[in-house]
Nucleic acid binder design. Structure first.
Length: 270
DNA sequence: CACGGATCCTGATGGC
DNA sequence: TGCCATCAGGATCCGT
């Protein structure tokens, strides 16, 4: 579910509402991806100062330490002042003076981890190898090209790996490669600089547009205020196998790459 | 060490 | 309220 746009949209939907809140209690249900690294009682009394994002991680800055939250495949957050019963898949909850933050995650690939600081070993183990943020000026075409030239895997896999550029998941990798006219099976090292420039621009454009549209709601994603996204309506290739390419009319193809579905236009993408 | 495949988990969907 | 196989937005681990 959540790629960079969905995580960013989630952040924007509750960051200002939770900022300055005092944690009253915390709850951890069924195990998520990793142990949280702190007893839940130890969170009570701490203040949530700000909410940042790094790649697909949300970083809740506390007055002492921080919480890293990852939504995995099926996770979504809600932040509400209204109280309601915990649902079957609500596996983490933070009750604060300004509302309750809940993680709903049926598949439990998500994670909530406490780290004493961003530089700590536990935080760096998760964040240390992440690539550049695509929606900042640090993401620059020339260094992007240099990184790609060192990679021997196919370009789709390199985008998904997240150690060159973060936040591009399966939907947006397909969409970005379509927009750039690049075939997903092309080896990264084979991309010319001009084509890398197109790819660089496509990543910025698609992710920015997806954030503006509130992310993609394929099945049940919603932001922390419960609102669905609309970018899926603008998808050109993802989930459109067999349908006519909107640019050339040829049927969109679906292939498997690294146990993920890849969608592309065999004519428009070379 | 860089790469590709198996793996964690639950639910929805479609064919039989 | 049928059963089984397949697929799903992610990322780590393990063998080569």
């Amino acid at each position: 579910m959540p790629e960079l746009p969905e995580v960013e949209v989630t952040r924007l939907s509750f960051a200002s509402r939770i900022a300055g809140a005092r944690i009253i209690s915390a709850y951890v249900g069924k195990p998520l991806r990793w142990p949280m690294g702190v007893e839940v009682q130890q969170l009570a009394g701490r203040e949530v100062c700000a909410v940042r994002r790094r790649g697909k991680y949300l970083l809740l800055d506390l007055d002492d330490g921080l919480l890293l939250i990852h939504l995995g495949m099926s996770g979504s957050l809600s932040f509400s002042g209204l109280s309601s019963a915990l649902g079957k898949h609500d596996h983490f909850e933070l009750v604060t003076s300004q509302g309750t933050l809940r993680l709903n995650d049926p598949r439990r690939f998500g994670a909530v981890v406490f780290a004493p600081s961003e530089d700590s070993t536990v935080a760096q183990k998760l964040l240390g190898k992440l690539g550049v943020e695509p929606l900042t000026d640090e993401f620059e075409a020339r260094s992007f090209h240099e990184s790609l030239m060192r990679r021997h895997s196919v370009i789709k896999q390199v985008l998904l790996a997240g150690d060159v550029v973060v936040g591009v998941g399966n939907i947006y990798a397909c969409e970005v490669l379509f927009l750039a006219g690049i075939r997903p099976t092309l080896r990264a090292e084979r991309l010319s600089f001009p084509r890398t420039v197109k790819l660089h621009a496509a990543i910025k454009k698609v992710l920015t547009r997806a954030v503006e549209q509130g992310g993609s709601t394929l099945r049940d994603f919603s932001n922390a205020s419960g609102e669905a996204g609309h970018f899926q309506l603008e998808a050109r290739v993802y989930g459109r196998a067999g349908q006519a390419c909107q640019a050339c009319g040829v049927p969109i193809k679906m292939i498997r790459q690294g146990q993920r579905s890849t969608f592309f236009c065999p004519t428009c993408q070379r």
